[in-house]
Design a protein around this nucleic acid. Structure first.
Lengths: 256, 256
DNA sequence: CGGGCGATTGAAAAAGATCAAGAACGGTGG
DNA sequence: CCACCGTTCTTGATCTTTTTCAATCGCCCG
């Protein structure tokens, strides 16, 4: 990974932080000059193993990453998805041997940021500490939403909600044109995220397709009826804590 | 609420923090001298409404509190339970209008701690900031575990796991003698926490009772077979991040 | 003593899981 | 460029878990 690419990714990360927090010029500069160690990970390979103690956090440069934990008999539950610009295990700065793992769901480039460097930045700039802390809390909000989703909605609505979330998150990094966005997961992955079986995900997906709401194909999600999808998923973007997105973009100005 | 009670509660809160983080004498003193505003809340009353913007965090002095969100048609999902010594909405310091609510599940005394005071303490003592941040992350770990529970386990195992978690958490505040602990929830509450219906919780509870694992009665959980319960729930306390508990107490020294 | 909420139980229906098999797809090597 | 291979997707049939609906019971509180 060359210098330009690393600057791009750090910029994306900074954008994410400043979407939720206010940083001054020096603080922004400090974020942009964080040291990173690029690492390529093949699809379906684990980036961080379950319970492994880590000394760095993983900033996603490209690809698609899932965080998961599993039952003793190996049934997997995906806890969150991460797209470029996300620091997938930001929490590891506070709890370095957390009992959850990261897996690359596609070929992925991660930038490892040493905890030491992050701690140094937070010590020097309390606003950076607050921004990272806030992002940890935001992750928790998303978890809470997933809990509501899995605990209280049927398969179709869960699926619709997840697709809405991913749409808005890709929107935030400029990768959704209102028509389609990357969603390079297998139905198996999807089932692990939604607490369902792959077979049932397949059928629910078929349902959404036949309703004319959304189409998954070639690693992308094609949104056919955004308002319909939002309605089906009972989606309200505010929990994502991404101001600016939740207001205008929520209304389906021109989606089909 | 008199001065002694408020000191006790702050002490409990400090113990919680120092179970996961290291604080120096000055920092401990700063935590203990946080200003609190006591507030009584009746059972089934909301402490913080959904989406309400708050200027203080809620430290539970006595009682039992649930955090929840809900679907548009009013189906409720409990996100977490909180017992005395917990600061239930610690996250609100970072996101003051989070889309989740707090409800008192029993008559409860809450100590409201002004965000201003907390921010002041974090500004003066970075170690306090880190401790609060770490506790936010720990809350997220519990959420992740609940997600695994609800997404990938059947009713009986979910129930067993939740009971194990509450046992250990009460243990940590010295309210579990290895035999029984307070668990003052209705089966309706329980169903909202586990993503089930109250009827099915009732049947699962009956199952656990007939297996001789645990008995819920009079607002308490009586653990009849701790190792059995741990096994049924596939429970591993490490995710709670409460060192000292996970080692020895996990082994069922003498539970029946 | 009466009322009401919560617990319990039964029967029937629905959602989702499981098992199994075939089709489509994507990449690889000849 | 094509044949082949493994993975992923799709579909059907059947089974299990959980929900839903409804009724009764029991207990605590006023």
């Amino acid at each position: 990974m060359n210098f330009a690419a690393s600057a791009d990714t750090l910029r994306l990360f900074l954008d994410r932080l400043t979407a939720r927090s206010v940083l001054g010029p020096d603080e922004k500069e400090a974020v942009l000059s964080l040291p990173v160690h690029p690492r390529q990970v093949a699809a379906h390979r684990e980036i961080v193993r379950l319970g492994e103690r880590v000394e760095h956090s993983c900033l996603i440069a490209s690809g698609f990453v899932g965080r998961f934990s599993q039952t003793e008999d190996g049934r997997r539950q995906l806890i969150s998805f991460h797209i470029p610009g996300d620091m997938a295990d930001i929490y590891s700065l506070m709890i370095p041997s957390a009992p959850s793992a990261l897996v690359a769901l596609t070929p992925t480039t991660v930038f490892q940021v040493p905890h030491a460097a992050l701690r140094d930045a937070t010590a020097r700039y309390p606003a950076i500490a607050a921004a990272l802390w806030r992002d940890c809390v935001a992750d928790g909000m998303i978890l809470a939403q997933w809990l509501l989703n899995i605990g209280r909605k049927n398969a179709r609505d869960r699926l619709a909600h997840l697709l809405c979330e991913m749409a808005i998150r890709y929107r935030q990094i400029g990768r959704w044109d209102g028509r389609s966005f990357p969603f390079p997961v297998t139905q198996e992955d999807l089932s692990d995220a939604l607490g369902l079986t792959a077979v049932h995900v397949n059928r629910s997906l078929k349902g959404l397709r036949q309703e004319g709401l959304v189409l998954l194909k070639g690693g992308r999600a094609e949104v056919l009826d955004w308002p319909g999808l939002v309605f089906a998923g009972e989606f309200d973007a505010t929990y994502l804590g991404l101001p600016g997105v939740s207001e205008d973009e929520m209304r389906p100005a021109r989606s089909v």
